[in-house]
Computed example of a mutant assay.
Amino acid sequence: MISQRDDLAEKIYAISVLQQNFVIERLKTLHLNGLQSRSLSFIAEHSGTMQRDLANYLGKQQATVTNILKVLEERGLIYREIPKNNERQKNIYLTTEGEEMVKKVQAIFQELGKHIESAFSPEEQQQFTEFLKRAEEQLT
């Protein structure tokens, strides 16, 4: 019988927790939490996005996203603009400071990737990626 600590799903979960802790600790140095960093990254990829689209991406209620955006706006990382053709909506954009913050957030994930990849040869990385894709397919 396989002990729970050696179970594959348990190992994946444990690695996920370690990865989250790695990211959270580094985001703290930027005075960001996970939802704020994910919001900034989404806005960077979807400049001019609407709050509804961000809420869908985050899987959060509109009120939660409003609070996230309020903090990011107060920090000068984003701004909201009302388009001339629709005064009921606001489009969201990064400020220059927000763009710089996104680069810092991306650097955290690059650092994480380097840590993980350093444990494997290029061939092992490719094989491991294929294994993970198969595991992911089983859950979708």
Rank of each mutant, 00 (worst) to 15 (best):
Ser3Lys: 09
Leu8Gln: 09
Tyr13Cys: 02
Tyr13Leu: 13
Ala14Trp: 05
Ala14Leu: 15
Ala14Ser: 14
Leu18Asp: 12
Leu18Phe: 04
Leu18Tyr: 06
Asn21Leu: 11
Asn21Gly: 01
Val23Lys: 13
Glu25Gly: 10
Arg26Tyr: 00
Leu27Ala: 07
Leu27Ile: 02
Thr29Gln: 14
Leu30Gln: 10
Leu30Asp: 03
Leu30Ser: 15
His31Phe: 08
His31Ser: 14
His31Trp: 10
Leu32Thr: 00
Leu32Gly: 07
Leu32Asn: 03
Asn33Met: 06
Asn33Cys: 05
Leu35Thr: 06
Leu35Val: 07
Ser37Pro: 03
Ser37Trp: 08
Arg38Lys: 15
Phe42Ala: 01
Ala44Thr: 04
Ala44Pro: 04
Glu45Tyr: 00
Glu45Asn: 13
His46Leu: 07
Gly48Asp: 06
Met50Val: 15
Met50Ser: 07
Met50Asp: 03
Arg52Thr: 07
Leu54Lys: 00
Leu54Tyr: 06
Leu54Val: 13
Ala55Thr: 04
Asn56Asp: 14
Asn56Val: 15
Tyr57Ile: 01
Tyr57Ala: 09
Tyr57Phe: 13
Leu58Glu: 03
Lys60Ala: 12
Lys60His: 12
Ala63Cys: 05
Thr64Pro: 01
Val65Pro: 09
Val65Trp: 07
Thr66Cys: 11
Thr66Pro: 04
Asn67Met: 12
Ile68Trp: 15
Ile68Thr: 09
Ile68Phe: 09
Leu69Ser: 08
Lys70Asp: 01
Val71Met: 08
Glu73Leu: 07
Glu74Gly: 03
Glu74Thr: 02
Ile78Phe: 02
Ile78Tyr: 05
Ile78Asn: 01
Tyr79Phe: 15
Arg80Val: 08
Arg80Pro: 03
Glu81Asn: 11
Glu81Tyr: 12
Glu81Met: 06
Ile82Asp: 05
Lys84Ile: 10
Lys84Thr: 13
Lys84Phe: 09
Glu87Leu: 15
Glu87Cys: 00
Gln89Tyr: 03
Lys90Asp: 05
Lys90Trp: 03
Lys90Ile: 00
Asn91Met: 14
Asn91Phe: 10
Ile92Phe: 00
Ile92Glu: 00
Tyr93Gly: 02
Tyr93Lys: 02
Tyr93Phe: 15
Leu94Pro: 01
Leu94Ser: 04
Thr95Asp: 12
Thr96Ile: 13
Glu97Lys: 12
Glu97Val: 06
Glu97Ile: 02
Gly98Gln: 07
Gly98Phe: 05
Glu99Ser: 05
Glu99Cys: 00
Glu99Thr: 10
Glu100Gly: 11
Met101Pro: 01
Val105Tyr: 06
Ile108Asp: 05
Gln110Val: 08
Leu112Lys: 04
Gly113Val: 05
Lys114Ile: 03
His115Val: 11
Ile116Tyr: 12
Ser118Thr: 13
Ala119Leu: 09
Ala119Glu: 14
Phe120Pro: 01
Pro122Leu: 05
Pro122Ala: 10
Gln125Arg: 15
Gln125Lys: 10
Gln125Ser: 05
Gln126Leu: 08
Gln126Ile: 04
Gln127Thr: 07
Phe131Pro: 00
Leu132Asp: 02
Ala135Met: 11
Ala135Gly: 08
Ala135Ile: 14
Ala135Thr: 14
Gln138Ala: 13
Leu139Thr: 04
Thr140Ile: 09
Thr140Cys: 10
